[in-house]
Design a protein around this nucleic acid. Structure first.
Lengths: 217, 217
DNA sequence: CCATGATAGATAGTGGGGCTATCTGATAGC
DNA sequence: GCTATCAGATAGCCCCACTATCTATCATGG
């Protein structure tokens, strides 16, 4: 198909498609002449993936380029893809390197060993976690750390389900992409579920229809 | 204290503090003369909250302004604050209104009634969830929906812990802010934990050889 | 009492990100 | 031939989170 049809099928404007090609998110169409190229279903699928990662996953174009480069790498070390997909969170800001930060790192190390997780504190996710905990402490919510084990248990539950899902995918080439989709879109799914569950829990705890608080006034 | 000291204590540049005041994130200092204003600990605390919401929570300045306006509202309907804090996810993009979108909305409605959640599908989170599920389906991962109940269970677990935490806060004025902090930073915490758990689950499933290198990069 | 430096407030500019518009040839397909 | 479309390249646009600059006004120490 030509670029116009690709655009119509996916709802992505032609100039935007060209932009994605320039940025390395989408392979160029196969040139059939100096000014004609043909695109196939792989382009269509890739384009949909890009939009999902952008719109639902909230990823940046440059991050998507990294992840897709990893996906397309024939060597495809699964953990590198996962890393590229996950590292997107890592705020570039390093924050202050104070007492709270040190305490938070210790908390993370303790958690990892307590749960017997086969990961290391050098994992970017561990850094992100420590940063979040440090921020919490600086805001006077250091006791939030008491919830860590509950959170960790829920995270394990979700991670087990994710991995089981990916594992049951037949084709390996689908698996790599499935990891990316599961990691990124799964986060959006869980985030929405958490917000829904908040409303429900709030309704149960405070009785009223999703409207607790305000009892004060 | 004067603005310079506030800046030094929080690490936020003076022009940035002025910018936050302009944008309504931070109340102006109390003028002691035409060109002097004094700031106190509430400003310091608010400034730290802003930076946490920005850097760790990934919120936009305008979103933070909405949330903080709700926090400062004496009427403080807690659910409105929560709404302001949660609605930040809702992509402005509405996406195609096709068969996948309709099916996804049905899936969400079913899930809500199946779990007996006291919320309504008009909740923005429900819309976000439907959008994520529709994107998954369009990517050929409609079966991901099989994980929904596992995800929902984990979300309930987390939500119960969150609410219990907030409820045990003594002062009500801290409670409202606590909800915001818990909702936004809690998401960052869970996200990091999920990524750590992914690495662990991956190591367990594929053996120490396949994935543990994931910590490297 | 004056010099120095910080400050309030206002306006303009900056750099990154994600497109979008326009232009130049060169085809495709009728 | 004639018109619509296309590849490729360049330039521009809008949003966002700051950041720089400028003026007038004080605070303070010598």
């Amino acid at each position: 198909m030509r670029i116009g049809e690709l655009s119509r099928k996916t709802g992505v404007p032609v100039p935007t498609i060209k932009y994605y090609v320039r940025e390395g998110l989408l392979p160029a169409g196969e040139l059939t002449s100096r000014n004609q190229a043909s695109y196939d279903e792989t382009h269509e699928r890739r384009l949909r993936l890009i939009r999902a990662l952008l719109d639902v996953g909230g990823m940046k174009v440059a991050e998507i380029a990294d992840v897709l480069a990893a996906v397309d790498d024939p060597e495809r070390p699964l953990h590198k893809v996962l890393g590229a997909a996950a590292d997107r969170m890592g705020g570039t800001a390093d924050g202050p390197d104070d007492a709270e930060a040190a305490a938070a790192r210790t908390t993370v190390t303790d958690l990892i060993s307590r749960r017997g997780w086969r990961t290391h504190e050098s994992n970017p996710a561990a850094t992100d976690l420590a940063r979040a905990l440090a921020a919490l402490t600086r805001l006077g919510h250091g006791t939030f750390a008491e919830l860590l084990d509950t959170y960790a248990e829920a995270a394990e539950q979700v991670a087990r389900a994710d991995l089981a899902y990916v594992d049951r995918r037949v084709a390996v080439e689908d698996m790599v992409e499935g990891v990316v989709i599961g990691t990124v879109l799964g986060e959006a799914v869980f985030s929405a579920l958490r917000r829904l569950a908040h409303v429900d829990a709030s309704a149960r705890l405070y009785g009223a229809e999703g409207a607790p608080g305000a009892e004060k006034s």
